[in-house]
């Protein structure tokens, strides 16, 4: 009734995939014999060292600014591009395919690669990280928003045509109010992701709390590492809370 014969093959295929993935990733639960090491290590994290708190707050704000600016600039550039990358609003078929391809190309390059390339020209610091996050977010938000545009209700667009509004303006006016709450929730999710990305970019010298975490770790200052991690968790939760607040206000 519920299962087809073909489902058995799917299950077998999945089992085979899981097996080979475990081999490749050296997945082995027996390694937890050395569990004590982790407890020893984590015990060095406490008590937390609050002496560097002011500097950490400063770095956290830098991370916040970096993630906000990168994702926000990404949104600003992604909005007009997404209208070109949506099949129902694109001015021409060629432009549609071209922007689609460009967006997936930009998306396929990880932020860290952008960061490493930009470092050579812009030297160390948060600025190349902002650009790296921006480029990647243009790719991601451009794709997500163009999909929202494609899924929007065509009724209001038709109504704008019928009142004699100009084509492009009619699209903008009838689609944007519909998709705006979803655009915002995508944006805040990307903002949150950008905070985590900026930590990784901190490892290659982009500054912020990520670089501090990396440095504290490398110099075995585990009581500072624990506070760094706590700061990061607070940052991410804060952005999540702000995001849901703004989204509720808009809806």
């Amino acid at each position: 009734m519920w299962f087809k014969y073909r489902s058995i093959f799917t299950v077998i295929l999945l089992l085979v995939l899981v097996f080979f993935s475990m081999r490749l990733t050296e997945f082995d639960l027996s390694k937890f014999k050395e569990f004590r090491n982790m407890i020893d290590f984590l015990s060095q994290w406490f008590p937390m060292d609050f002496s560097k708190l002011p500097a950490m707050i400063h770095d956290s704000l830098e991370t916040l600014a970096l993630a906000f600016l990168g994702s926000f600039l990404g949104l600003i550039f992604a909005l007009p591009i997404s209208f070109m990358a949506a099949v129902n609003t694109s001015p021409s078929k060629y432009l549609y395919h071209f922007t689609r391809f460009s967006l997936s190309f930009v998306r396929s390059i990880p932020e860290i690669v952008f960061g490493l390339i930009l470092l050579t020209a812009l030297s160390l610091g948060p600025f190349p990280a902002v650009l790296a996050i921006m480029f990647h977010n243009v790719g991601v938000l451009g794709k997500l928003i163009s999909e929202l545009i494609e899924a929007s209700d065509p009724g209001p667009q038709e109504a704008m045509k019928a009142v004699g509004a100009k084509k492009g303006f009619g699209y903008l006016f009838s689609i944007l109010p519909q998709i705006w709450p979803n655009v915002l929730s995508h944006y805040f999710y990307r903002f949150e992701v950008a905070i985590r990305t900026s930590l990784i970019l901190g490892f290659i010298g982009a500054g912020g709390i990520g670089q501090r975490l990396f440095n504290d770790f490398k110099t075995f200052q585990y009581s500072s590492v624990s506070l760094d991690v706590l700061m990061i968790m607070i940052l991410v939760i804060m952005v999540d809370l702000i995001g849901s607040y703004v989204r509720n206000k808009v809806i």
Binding site: G155, A159, Q178
Partner: peptide, 14 residues
Amino acid sequence: MGMIFQHFNLIPRL
């Protein structure tokens, strides 16, 4: 030519 529609086709959230 003013036109009205079955599903009204108003712009939501305005």
